[in-house]
Write a protein that binds this DNA or RNA. Structure first.
Length: 348
DNA sequence: ATCATTTGACCTCG
DNA sequence: CGAGGTCAAATGAT
């Protein structure tokens, strides 16, 4: 019952979103009502499916999918949309220099080069050591980061409004800054695995001034963390952006939905990440390469997500068939969710 | 104890 | 000099 599973997940997510966003929704009865109805509809649908089909079926009928689409398709599509790239901008005219990272400037430098003693030669005009007298290191750099890709991602309409949609990678926040002229602060993230893999991928996340529900995400650097630790240099051409390296031999995205990892923002695993990843994979753009997003990707000819009507069942199948049987998928799911919810309950 | 986030300070660039 | 990007100590969560 792959699709049913997906529906359950979706319903759970809605419920969780509702819970988390209750304070806000309390002031919006209409939205609250709509949310409740969505949840009810989803679970009702699941229930009907279970009743009418029993729980053992494995294959899906097209017409049933259609039924799902009819019932909650719009909601799911919205959900999907909320976690997907809704707009892709030009890489801000930055020519795409494959080798990027400007001579690996970033590599090994920002890697806390300072504290670990790796003191880079300062630029000719040595930075005034007025401040660094004590530690004299802290080589920071800007400007020469290689390519940069800017995407706009819809924020979840409800729920964890502070967290940008998952993109398949795990990020660690290292800074936040008020930006002149912007209503919302910009958050700075780097790859969680930076230390282990010298992964230099970074991203900046900022809400649009005029659209609270849209994040502008700027990716920089290249993910190397998904490769074996022995080959960190086999960088994926695609900088940060969602797309797992479909063109490489790496089979899995760096973080699997149900793996025990999810070190950082695991509190959102249920959100868009799964579908986002799947979308990226199944939509095959794959290749893409920054070039894709750079020049081509932006084009309508190679949309990463052809449309938002990816059959739920297919997604679910991809989700749960990757390495485990559907039965223990369920266990995994609910145990994961229990853990997750447990932890979040404590938090609140 | 370990790891992630927050936040003020510091650094670089225009 | 100001804005933006990063560092790292403090703090919180697990």
């Amino acid at each position: 019952m792959d699709e049913g599973l997906a529906l359950v997940l979706y319903g759970c997510k809605l419920a969780k979103d509702l819970e988390q966003n209750l304070p806000h929704l309390a002031r919006q009865p209409d939205t609250l009502l709509a949310s409740c109805e969505d949840i009810i509809r989803v679970f009702t649908n699941v229930k009907e499916r279970l009743v009418s089909r029993g729980q053992t079926n494995v294959s899906r009928q097209p017409q049933e999918l259609q039924r799902i689409d009819d019932d909650i398709g719009v909601s799911i599509q919205e959900w999907l949309r909320s976690g997907m790239v809704v707009e892709q901008e030009q890489p801000s005219g930055l020519e795409f220099v494959a080798r990027g990272l400007s001579g690996g400037g970033d590599v090994g430098r920002s890697l806390k080069g300072g504290t670990s003693g790796d003191v880079q030669h300062p630029p000719i005009d040595a930075p005034d050591s007025s401040r660094t007298s004590s530690s004299s290191q802290r080589q920071r750099r800007r400007k020469d980061e290689g390519e940069k890709i800017v995407k706009r991602v819809a924020a979840p309409q409800m729920g964890n409004l502070d967290v940008p949609p998952e993109d398949g990678y795990t990020w660690r926040k290292y800074g936040q800054k008020e930006i002149l002229g912007s209503k919302y602060p910009r958050s700075y993230y780097r790859c969680t695995h930076q230390k282990f893999y010298e992964c230099q991928a970074k991203k900046q996340v900022q809400r649009l001034d005029d659209d609270f529900f849209t994040f502008e995400v700027t990716y920089r650097g290249t993910h190397t963390c998904h490769m074996s630790s022995t080959a960190p240099s086999a960088a994926v051409p695609v900088p940060g952006p969602p797309l797992p390296p479909a063109t490489t031999t790496a089979v899995h995205p760096p973080v699997l939905p149900f793996s025990s990892s999810l070190p950082t923002t695991h509190h959102d695993w249920l959100s868009m990440q799964i579908f986002h990843d799947l979308g990226g994979v199944s939509a095959g753009g794959g290749s893409s390469v920054a070039a894709g997003s750079g020049g081509g990707g932006a084009g309508p000819s190679a949309p990463r997500f052809p449309d938002y009507q990816l059959p739920v069942a297919d997604m679910a199948e991809t989700m749960f068939n990757s390495g485990s049987t559907s039965s223990n998928s369920m266990d995994l799911i609910f145990s994961s969710m229990d853990d997750k919810w447990d932890s979040e309950e404590k938090k609140e």
